[in-house]
Design a protein around this nucleic acid. Structure first.
Lengths: 365, 365
DNA sequence: GGAGTCTGGGAAAGCACTTTCCAAAGACTA
DNA sequence: TAGTCTTTGGAAAGTGCTTTCCCAGACTCC
């Protein structure tokens, strides 16, 4: 009489729980009991295809499930099967439309494949990215997408790369949207080429003197765009005075401040390139505050072609990146079953879009 | 010799796995083996505070953890402890700044408390919200936040409410940002009052004839704003012609189309209220395409005071909602340990902000 | 110096599942 | 009708953790 092998089975005592207690969730065992079948059979019914179960048994199980409102515990399932269905998304700032657009593309694809998408804002740069990759490793996530610029902090980057290595070794997949510096699949916006093309287009449009609102010093995306722009100017033998490159946060207010700095320094270029649209908008606001009309008094160009910013006035010259598409591409790389030997680099070209904010009414010499 | 109770222990055969195989992740047992302690002790060391462990043992365990690069499997831990650390976020469209701002506030708080934030875009309304709540129930998530307007589809809403009920019964917490219609904690933006105040302010500013770009028919947020606006006008005995209320999607393009519809119908009101900023921006674009100057030819007002839209031209009159703060408030309600008997409703007032887009140069009679 | 109280380590029982293995029945062939 | 093969249900072993329970040894106390 030691072992009551069947029937009265183990049953947690909390069926008569005190009011304040944790609620007793219904488990697969409860379903099996109610349906009068074994746990095994109940499990098989719910994982259709794992093995044939007679229709009558299946029917009873389904009825029990419905009556009890049972829903399989995905965490337990993940432990049992050894594979989870979560994927991670890391952005710098989810409220920034650049990131939310890319994330939207990724999330759409991931969710449509039945994956659970976890997200975070890594406001503290690569250190927080590392932390999150680690968390995803602890979650045994299938994949992680890192959206956003790398920084020039090589120490932090190495630490991030190490964490990514551990994650990959555990079977996780990683894709990055940004610079190709982590040795993983990368969706690489062509920041340099895009900015270069923009510079050429601006010179071709008649602009001759330039300044750059350059974003934070450490951010490689900002740096690439500045470098590309400089190269584009050089191709036309136009010089960019180092003092005409002023740094500032990658935000609207950063653009505002940077423009302030430029004006305070006595700069009055014919055209200003802000390294992203959000900064460009801040710069426009600053000009307006100063009473300088947008293309006439000073032309302004941005980068990204953010959807919500397409209607600022004057319409912003910019370099369009297919943000949502980039998120989808990233999802495609990392959610497929294939496991390529080499990291794949997908360059994404930007398209120069000339609008009114850099118009030169009568083309100057 | 049947039972080798110690030492050689169970060891999965995959230590000599074939190249293409699933990688062998290191488990707590591996750590314990390496440190020469029991699984129990290793677990205790990693869950500091669960019970005292001698320094020497702890040291060995920590060293083994470091050498093996061990990271506890959170899913397994969740199964063992019966409580997970995930929370869910449901937005209508993550790329829409209204949602991403609220989500950002919530995510910030949740992540700082060590919670894992899962997110989805419920583009198909309450049906997809229901689906996601169900998924969160399966994940045994701690809480879910539903960000966005309720619809007038009562059937779908009832179905969502039922799912929420099941989730709550399992111990999950739910908070909604929007109308108080689900019987859960709610952050309730005062859409009606805000729109009413806006209407009064516009009339006070001298406007006399109005139209409304009303958003989708079924969305209660849109409806509340229209109703509030109408009430505000009525208070000043200004009438709103039903034909001057034109519906359209809650997006920039929706605003554009709605404005098209208004113009096509021969409408030429002195002032148009678009029920959110994004639509207002679309409306402004349409006016520009028509050659109608913004405040002079027709005034335009929005709602929300979206950060990225503060720099459109002309600057948009709107009703400011503290979006990020609302997300934080929601997090506060639902991530606390207390479990109030009654759902709490937190009304969030909007603040009318008059800007140039509704300026009336010389106040008309 | 024996009773009583701490300590701290480990075996084993959970947790909510999946999956393997076994066995009993039914279907088929010869 | 025996022999083989194919179902199909269930017991039991995993999955990677936590936590309970037990127990040996160290310590205190009178």
């Amino acid at each position: 009489m030691t072992d009551v092998s069947q029937g009265g089975r183990r049953r947690r005592a909390n069926s008569a729980a005190r009011p304040g207690d944790a609620p007793s969730r219904v488990t697969l065992q409860d379903v099996a009991d109610r349906a009068g079948v074994s746990l095994t059979t109940a499990s098989r019914v719910l994982n259709e295809g794992s093995r044939r179960v007679s229709a009558s048994m299946a029917g009873r199980v389904h009825q029990a499930v419905a009556e009890l409102g049972y829903l399989a515990n995905l965490q337990a399932r993940a432990v049992a099967t050894g594979q989870s269905s979560t994927v991670g998304v890391v952005v710098h700032d989810i409220a920034d439309p650049y990131f939310s657009s890319i994330a939207a593309g990724f999330i759409e694809v991931a969710y449509s494949r039945g994956l659970l998408v976890c997200i975070t804002s890594a406001s503290a740069g690569e250190a927080s990215e590392r932390e999150y990759v680690s968390l995803m490793r602890a979650q045994r996530a299938r994949a992680v997408i890192l959206i956003g610029s790398r920084s020039d902090d090589e120490r932090a980057r190495a630490s991030l790369a190490a964490e990514i290595g551990a994650f990959s070794r555990d079977g996780g997949r990683v894709v990055c949207v940004g610079q190709d510096l982590l040795g993983v699949d990368t969706i690489m916006p062509e920041n340099t080429a895009g900015a270069e093309a923009l510079a050429r287009a601006l010179v071709a449009a008649g602009h001759r003197s330039f300044a750059v609102l350059a974003g934070p010093r450490g951010l490689l995306t900002a740096r690439d765009r500045v470098e590309g722009f400089r190269a584009g100017l050089r191709a036309w033998s136009v010089d960019l005075d180092p003092r005409a490159v002023v740094h500032g946060p990658f935000t609207r207010d950063g653009g505002y401040e940077a423009m302030s700095g430029l004006l305070a320094g006595g700069g009055r270029p014919g055209c200003v390139f802000a390294v992203n649209d959000v900064m460009a908008v801040g710069a426009l606001a600053r000009l307006r505050a100063e009473g300088i009309a947008a293309p006439a008094g000073m032309a302004v160009a941005g980068f990204d072609d953010i959807l919500t910013l397409r209607d600022v006035y004057p319409p912003l010259t910019t370099v369009r990146l297919p943000l949502t598409r980039m998120g989808e591409l990233a999802a495609g790389l990392v959610l497929a079953d294939d496991r390529p030997g080499q990291p794949r680099i997908i360059p994404v070209p930007g398209e120069v879009i000339l609008r009114d904010s850099t118009r030169t009414s009568p083309p100057r010499a």
